[in-house]
Design a protein around this nucleic acid. Structure first.
Length: 752
DNA sequence: TTACGCCTCCTTTTT
DNA sequence: GGAGGCGTAA
């Protein structure tokens, strides 16, 4: 039985509002998850609502899982019937069930951005679009925006008018959709859009879900896009029990189509909506909250609100400007170590946040060097790695051979002597006869042009057929093992005996673990479902609560999380806020960056530390960056540390010992591209910062018995070191990975 | 057909 | 700095 007295009056009001639209404006740390979970409990326990009729939509799978756990904990009975899901997962589920009503195979596959790009490449080739002047990525992002506004190919074409560029994109859009449908594949945007389409074309399906999902709750409402709004509007149209929770100040996904108007105009769409503001913060110290309020106040067009807290004053926010990103990383790490010594803290009490994934590299290097446990969230996604994508492509083809992109990916991996020429012939044949590529390959001996390679092609198709037969009776992990073995994929890697191959094998083992994990957690494991889960996970979904490591992640990934000690690194104009937002005509761009900053600050419970680097390596060039304007928007009295004057480049005068810089053209290196031969400015100071970041020379400075540190494997002890060719073979017993043999020049081991 | 190497291009964030 | 694309050589 849950107790509602523990909630403050505003929270109680939100929990007890049952019928009709409700907008909860929940400031950061104001206990909105508490409100949502208690509201679910209240509906079930006090209002006799059938749990089956409750639908809660969250932003990430992790949030969904947490909400489910918390609801389970406070509701005695029936909590498992509440449907808690992300938009994308929910749509997949509905489409798998009813998608055939609008012409989709129930086993449609889901394309990630790489797959999309492959399709677009083919489209561009077909339409003779020059990808030098119009990038595939650019076209795709245009299409994505269109989809987010629910504009289909025909309408897009109409809207294009006489704009040549847009007309070309319209053609590409139409061809792209055609190919997706031909492959029975949807991209992320389609998952939402096609569900709306399903509801439009099959009113009975819509009504089925309206009756089923009578109480709808949407978390992180400020980050919904127009399609998601439409989806929710349709579902809630019959019973109008829609409760949305959000904070316009935390809207940070405009780039992906989020429409901040959804929350700002909620009352226009639902004139009878009740609006409740949660303005008491239970998370942060007064100091941190004051800083957050001060920063966000610089934005216009927000829903007026000011967070307050009864928490203690807390310590001042620390600020430090370092020489470069490596010193910044070292500074943060020694600060963490100091805090660990003076206070009782776990590693998992610390998080380092940054604007771009690339910033993780320097930090990671120094963490390895220092031997502190850490975890980088996001970045190069596990599921984007070559070997993982290959295996998933095998699984996809086994599951359904309609998807040409996956077939192309693996038809010659490992090498079977099937070249692009043969493949093109088969693709042409498939095109002309309206069959899928796989079907064409299967009948290769009947395609005259393929006579010579038909035998090789059949090796592939027979292999797939065998796997399909095996899939009927084998469990998924055995099937996976069989793929690794029978294709020779694993053997090929094992023979390679390089660091890289070893990492790949580890990744393949990791994928196996995930499959086993899925099998164990599912009542009725199924290949299609496995693939869909894989397609829809975010890296943050995999962060375990009980894992005692420092977390490194982007500000975006940190949304919805909280940590006792937060470091915001790379507080530099040009990086954060990003250069593009600084020069943009659209003032909302810089405001979105500021909201991101607000999100970052409000993640902190006890201490907040800001840092930046004077110079930073970016895109192969060393850049000089002034301190972020956001730092200066925080009142001085809240900050411990000197914030340089606004004329930031003067800060270089103090202590740079002989390294004279002239104030550069303020345009960073990636600004409107100049002729490549003469970059505007390039600093020859790399050698200056190399200390600790790289070794150099061929003679290792370590020997048998020495402790060394490796970028990937962490610390270990040198077992043997011997001369070979013009290099050294070194064997190291790593604390966490066991004995590894490697080339000294390649391994970049560092003596500790 | 493949392997290697040079060239080019990077939005920044992610379901 | 690094990944991916494309062209050339074997």
């Amino acid at each position: 039985m849950s107790s509602y007295e523990m909630l403050n009056p505003a929270q109680q009001e939100a929990v007890c509002h049952v019928d009709g639209p409700l907008l909860i404006l929940a400031g950061a740390g104001s206990g909105k998850t508490r409100v949502l979970t208690h509201r679910v409990a209240y509906l079930i326990e006090e209002c006799d609502v059938n749990p089956w009729n409750i639908f809660a939509i969250t932003f990430t799978n992790k949030a969904a899982r947490e909400m489910r756990e918390r609801v389970d904990a406070i509701v005695d009975f029936g909590a498992e019937d509440v449907w808690v899901s992300t938009f994308h997962s929910a749509c997949v589920r509905m489409l798998r069930r009813f998608g055939d009503r609008i012409g989709w195979d129930k086993r449609f596959s889901i394309y990630d951005t790489d797959d999309q790009k492959m399709v677009m490449r083919e489209v561009c080739k077909q339409l003779e679009i020059d990808t030098k002047t119009m990038k595939e990525r650019a076209i795709l992002s245009e299409i994505s925006s269109a989809k987010n506004e629910m504009i289909g190919p025909e309408e897009y074409k109409k809207l294009a008018g006489r704009d040549f560029r847009k007309l070309r994109i319209a053609d590409a859009y139409a061809a792209y959709q055609e190919r997706l449908h031909h492959n029975q594949a949807m991209d992320f945007d389609d998952l939402l859009l096609q569900t709306v389409e399903l509801f439009k074309q099959a009113p009975d399906v819509l009504e089925f879900y309206q009756d089923r999902l009578r109480y709808i709750m949407v978390d992180e409402y400020q980050d919904t896009n127009s399609v998601q709004f439409e989806l929710v509007r349709m579902l809630a149209d019959k019973y109008r029990n829609l409760c949305v929770v959000g904070d316009d100040d935390q809207s940070i996904y405009k780039f992906r189509g989020a429409n901040i108007r959804n929350i700002l105009d909620f009352e226009k769409h639902f004139p009878d909506a009740k609006v409740i503001k949660l303005e008491e913060n239970y998370r942060s110290t007064k100091t941190i909250l004051n800083a957050a309020n001060a920063v966000i106040r610089h934005n216009n067009g927000r829903k007026e609100k000011t967070l307050r807290t009864e928490n203690e004053e807390g310590t001042r926010i620390s600020f430090h400007q370092y020489q470069n990103e490596y010193e910044e990383a070292e500074g943060i790490i020694s600060d963490i170590q100091r805090t660990m010594r003076t206070e009782k803290a776990d590693y998992s009490d610390f998080a380092i946040l940054y604007r771009t994934n690339a910033q993780a590299r320097a930090l990671e290097e120094k963490f390895v060097y220092a031997g502190l446990p850490y975890r980088v969230v996001g970045g190069v996604n596990f599921y984007q790695r070559k070997e993982i994508k290959d295996m998933i492509a095998y699984l996809k083809v086994i599951d359904s051979g309609i998807d040409d992109v996956s077939v192309r990916r693996i038809v010659n991996v490992p090498r079977r002597g099937i070249g692009v020429a043969s493949l093109q012939k088969a693709a042409d044949f498939a095109e002309n006869s309206g069959m899928s590529l796989f079907e064409a390959l299967r009948g290769a001996d009947r395609i005259p042009e393929l006579k010579r390679s038909a035998a090789k092609i059949h090796v592939f198709t027979d292999l797939i057929q065998v796997f399909r037969a095996k899939a009927e009776y084998m469990n998924l992990s055995d099937l996976y093992d069989s793929i690794l073995e029978d294709t020779g994929y694993l053997a090929e890697l094992q023979e390679e005996e390089t660091d890289e191959a070893l990492t790949r094998i580890e990744n393949l083992e990791e994928l196996r673990n995930k499959i086993v994990e899925y099998e164990e957690g599912s009542e009725n494991p199924d290949l299609s479902e496995l693939l869909e889960q894989i397609a829809l996970v975010a890296d943050i979904d995999n962060v375990a609560e009980d894992d005692d490591r420092v977390l490194l992640m982007t500000l975006h990934s940190a949304k919805g999380l909280e940590f006792p000690h937060v470091y915001m690194s790379g507080m530099e104009d040009g990086l954060f806020p990003g250069y593009m937002s600084m020069v943009s005509d659209d003032p909302d761009e810089i405001e979105e960056e500021r909201r991101l900053c607000y999100v970052g600050i409000t993640r902190a419970q006890k201490t907040l530390s800001l840092s930046c680097a004077r110079t930073r390596m970016r895109q192969g060039e060393r850049q000089l960056n002034p301190v972020s304007r956001f730092v200066r928007e925080i009142p001085k009295e809240l900050i411990d540390g000197r914030v340089p004057s606004k004329n930031a480049f003067r800060a270089f005068d103090d202590d740079d010992g002989g390294y004279a810089f002239t104030a550069p053209d303020p345009a960073p290196a990636y600004a409107p591209r100049r002729e490549k031969s003469k970059p505007a400015f390039k600093y020859e100071i790399d050698s200056f910062i190399k200390k600790g970041s790289q070794m150099g020379g061929t003679e290792p400075d370590y020997g048998e018995g020495d402790r060394v540190s490796h970028v990937k494997f962490g610390q270990g002890t040198v077992v043997s070191l011997e001369k070979a060719d013009n290099d050294y073979n070194v064997s190291v017993d790593f604390d966490k990975f066991g004995v590894r043999k490697m080339k000294a020049s390649f391994s970049k081991l560092k003596k500790i």
